[in-house]
């Protein structure tokens, strides 16, 4: 399969909290990521807050210019932001956010918002626009009579359908979904996940699905990359990563998923605090919370290596006990 998107050595850093005399703090949100997204594939990116998953998503779309490294789309480097080429690329790549109410314009009707990308990219005119909007609304399961409604008149699930319809308006080949169902209730979440899956299968969309909800990721993704403090610590097909997580962090993450009808037994409770990108530990960033860490982990940065068909970054991996799901 040919790669649609390739990220090479992506780094993003922000300068924050310049004190009066001291040096500015440099926070590395993304710290050297190589990723390949194959055409038609759904790649899941999981990690806790501050792991850099949203920053990575924005760089994959070319919405943020990386500090170093590059993103190749169809083998071509990402054009500079705000150029003519970059604008044309926008129609092919779309982003869906967590909060649909923030992504929509409160003063515009649903139909007008879905029509907007068609007009901006000159894809349809006049009556054609109305037809396209009606078709898009039908595809995402919105009723025809909802066209003239405003966002606040719809429920959370319906709003997210509007956002999805608008993202699909330009027939994109690549979609980044950043926590698209996290704000929705369980019963509605399942409706939207099914919709995204149907659309992906019908159009052969290539998707990057960013989420902290491992159960949803398990359901929708072909392959999963687990991030910790700006780096990928494990990457594998979703079947194997959930059945047999290898990296100690992935093991803790998978075991921390509360399952209905199961108590707290057998869960790995991590010690210590969530990662803070402003105070990255030396060596393996996960070592202060790791059950298997020893002195070598505090100095040596583990490389992302192939371990029997999956990538993992852990010095202790050959010896870390396997954990059955």
């Amino acid at each position: 399969m040919s790669p649609l998107l390739e990220a090479r050595g992506l780094v993003q850093q922000y300068t924050s909290g310049k004190s009066l005399f001291g040096k500015p703090d440099i926070v590395r949100a993304v710290d050297g990521i190589d990723l390949t997204v194959t055409r038609g594939e759904v790649l899941g990116i999981v990690g806790e807050s501050g792991s850099g998953k949203s920053t990575l998503g924005r760089m994959l779309l070319g919405l943020e210019t990386p500090f170093s490294g590059e993103v190749l789309y169809h083998g071509q480097p990402m054009p500079a932001p705000r150029t003519e080429q970059w604008r044309r690329l926008r129609a092919q790549m779309q982003l869906i956010f967590q909060d649909p109410l923030a992504a929509l314009d409160r003063r515009m009707t649903i139909a007008a918002q879905i029509a907007e990308p068609l007009e901006i990219h000159g894809l349809a005119k006049g009556a054609e626009v109305t037809d396209r909007v009606a078709a898009l609304m039908a595809r995402v399961g919105l009723r025809r009579d909802q066209a003239d409604r405003y966002p606040h008149e719809l429920s959370g699930g319906q709003r997210q359908r509007v956002v999805i319809a608008r993202a699909l308006a330009t027939n994109p080949g690549f979609l980044v979904c950043d926590e698209p169902v996290s704000a929705l209730d369980v019963s509605i979440q399942a409706q939207v996940v099914n919709l995204l899956r149907d659309l992906q299968e019908q159009d052969g969309l290539t998707m990057v699905f960013i989420s902290h909800d491992l159960k949803v990721v398990r359901n929708i993704c072909d392959r999963v990359a687990v991030m910790y403090l700006g780096r990928v610590v494990e990457e594998a097909p979703s079947d194997s990563i959930f059945a047999e997580p290898r990296h100690p962090y992935t093991q803790a993450l998978v075991s921390s998923i509360p399952l209905a009808g199961q108590g707290l037994e057998g869960r790995i409770i991590l010690r210590g605090e969530p990662p803070n990108p402003a105070a990255r530990p030396s060596g393996c960033a996960f070592h202060p919370r790791c059950r298997f860490a020893d002195a070598s982990c505090t100095v040596q940065v583990p490389p992302l290596e192939n371990h029997g068909g999956r990538l993992a970054a852990c010095l202790k991996l050959p010896r870390a006990p396997r954990l059955a799901a």
């Binding site: 369980v186 019963s187 509605i188 979440q189 399942a190 409706q191 996940v193 099914n194 899956r197 491992l214 159960k215 949803v216 398990r218 359901n219 929708i220 079947d239 959930f242 998978v254 998923i257 399952l259 209905a260 799901a325």
Partner: peptide, 14 residues
């Protein structure tokens, strides 16, 4: 409606 970790890519029942 909750996705099942063990059921792979089975369709959800909303």
């Amino acid at each position: 409606a909750i996705p099942d970790l063990n059921a792979g890519r089975a369709r959800l029942v909303p």
